[in-house]
Design a binder for these strands. Structure first.
Lengths: 341, 341
DNA sequence: TTGTATGCGTTATCAT
DNA sequence: ATGATAACGCATACAA
């Protein structure tokens, strides 16, 4: 009992640079130099140091290092939601760049309704990350702008005035999607809308304008980012008196909800109903789903965002390069077909 | 130009406790006490301190705090994959418990092939988290056990000998699934297997034993956790000479891959092919998918894991309570039907 | 209640 | 190349 407790305490006692230095018979400074891989140690002592560190099981304390160092080497990343694989794509892109640049990543997760945005950003602030990459922020422009005054921020998938943003042209994408449905002969085309908060009005705008431009009446059904909620809302829409023959959803998650609703109601897609999503997420690409959607290339958005954040860290405050707009691409798959009128 | 640069530098200069103390006319210690919410400050000075902090825009430096403090208040979490929403469920469960206990969470992400496991765990070690909750670890038992000697670990969704584990009985779940198919009259039942690494043999075992117990021959197709890879492997299986009439996949992601393959090959589910998944992930629950699966209740697994990790932090090293096994439940939906022989 | 002083494990500057 | 030593921003034991 006494023995085992002793062993346990022994094993869990963290080894510090001091310990390594003592064991190797050198100063702490040399251990630090050796572990950072900078010049200033002879090959011989370096080996000696690594040997000691290895034997003692030393792991550098990143907390202490970042306190002592002025280096700007950690990116704070905020993902809106773990159930939308668009954010997985974006994260992969960020990680690719961060790894290549040797930067650390601190990851936090928000929520689809945005209620966690403030907390999560504050956590990043308290963790003293050097820059923040926020994907799918839901909070108002004002709050985001205020936050960006405290720390360099790159907003991904949403344009925020005055904040470096890497996004896809939502008006253009929504226009493509809507036009596609119109060209297929659809007239009653509904838009299953996301919460109409700051920064997410583009898709609705593109839809509205394209509908009006074609002499059609926009039919907007407010909904959410959550698939099950979208399914409920879509069901109500599809059961209504003059149900639409096509639904354009604000994102793939919601579009899948529309497919769920159609399935539940026995409505055949695309024969009786055409559905278009947005994001070209992994789920939309699945053969069994084959959702017609708008590709925004999440992976590339992530890469660009990280690269921009890195440039910001280097002190490149060139305002002209602060935003990246990408043109989305319509991906026609199996959920849209000509309307048989 | 000069002015703007000045402003910028000014705005980004981080405010410390020292600054707040000076502004409020008190000592650093009092500021610390006030911000930690412990007793030792008069209401009056506390207000004065908060006022100063507010005006200066002070945010506590968690890095410095955790260096100075001996408090055990941060959980390191590792999720295997961001594209499998089982891990989103588990994470939610962990977050619920962590929030309730006022603990911080440091999140890291691995990869389905396990190639990132070591790096990710090392990152957690270097970040000096006080305990690690690892979900869906892929590395060998030995490595996991070695790691657990350095820091308290709770393994979620995988049993690791000698390591606190919160998991679901995979043998039992696989037995239910296989028996379900047998009872539906299927005889040629294939198992689309996960990589047969340490800790993930239970589902295969349950399948094998149940098949043999019924006098049937196991048909195992090795595959991966990734949906698209599973789809490819399943397609090969379904195209073979005496293709199975039912496929039991090691998890929902893979099962969706099977559905993808069936769809691509024009095979009707469940009329011509029955499919069973595992996990009861959100995707499997979608009406349009309605996958028959085995529920392991990821959310609850996450809660239990966090709660166990918390107990470990409190020094409760009671070996008897170190593992939690839960009994899974078969959820019969629309992808399984009687085999018409 | 309030202030002083020391230490946490590093980095980095300055000697030697 | 190597070694003291002063920060880094905070927590905390202790004194006042």
């Amino acid at each position: 009992m006494l023995l085992s407790r002793h062993l346990r305490e022994d094993a869990l006692k963290t080894v510090t640079m001091e310990d390594v230095a003592r064991d190797a018979g050198v100063s702490r400074a040399l251990v630090s130099i050796a572990f950072r891989g900078v010049s200033g140690v002879s090959a011989a002592t370096r080996e000696k140091i690594f040997a000691s560190a290895d034997r003692l099981g030393y792991r550098p304390n990143r907390i202490a290092a970042s306190l002592a160092s002025k280096a700007q080497d950690t990116l704070g990343v905020m993902l809106q939601d773990l159930r939308n694989d668009l954010f997985a794509d974006i994260f992969d892109g960020i990680r690719d760049e961060a790894d290549a640049a040797g930067k650390h990543v601190v990851l936090t997760v928000g929520s689809v309704d945005g209620t966690r945005d403030e907390d999560v950003l504050d956590t990043l602030l308290q963790s003293r990350v050097d820059t923040v990459i926020a994907t799918g922020l839901v909070l108002p422009d004002n709050d985001a702008t205020t936050f960006a005054e405290r720390i360099p921020v790159v907003s991904v998938a949403r344009k925020i005035p005055g904040v470096a943003s890497v996004y896809s042209d939502n008006v253009a994408g929504a226009t493509m999607a809507t036009r596609h449905l119109i060209e297929l002969g659809h007239r009653r085309i509904a838009f299953l809308a996301n919460p109409q908060t700051d920064g997410y009005l583009g898709r609705r705008l593109g839809y509205d304008d394209t509908m009006r431009g074609a002499g059609l009446t926009p039919l907007v059904m407010p909904s959410s980012y959550a698939r099950d909620v979208a399914a409920r809302d879509a069901a109500a829409l599809l059961r209504s008196a003059d149900a639409p023959t096509a639904v354009f959803a604000h994102n793939d998650q919601a579009a899948l909800g529309v497919l769920d609703a159609a399935f539940s109601l026995g409505i055949s897609v695309p024969r009786e109903l055409s559905v278009v999503g947005y994001d070209n997420s992994a789920m939309s690409r699945a053969p069994g789903t084959a959702l017609t959607t708008v590709d925004i290339d999440g992976h590339e958005l992530g890469r660009r965002a990280a690269s921009l954040a890195l440039r910001q860290l280097e002190g490149d405050v060139n305002a002209s390069g602060r935003s990246v707009v990408r043109i989305p691409e319509l991906i026609v798959r199996e959920t849209t077909a000509a309307h048989a009128s």
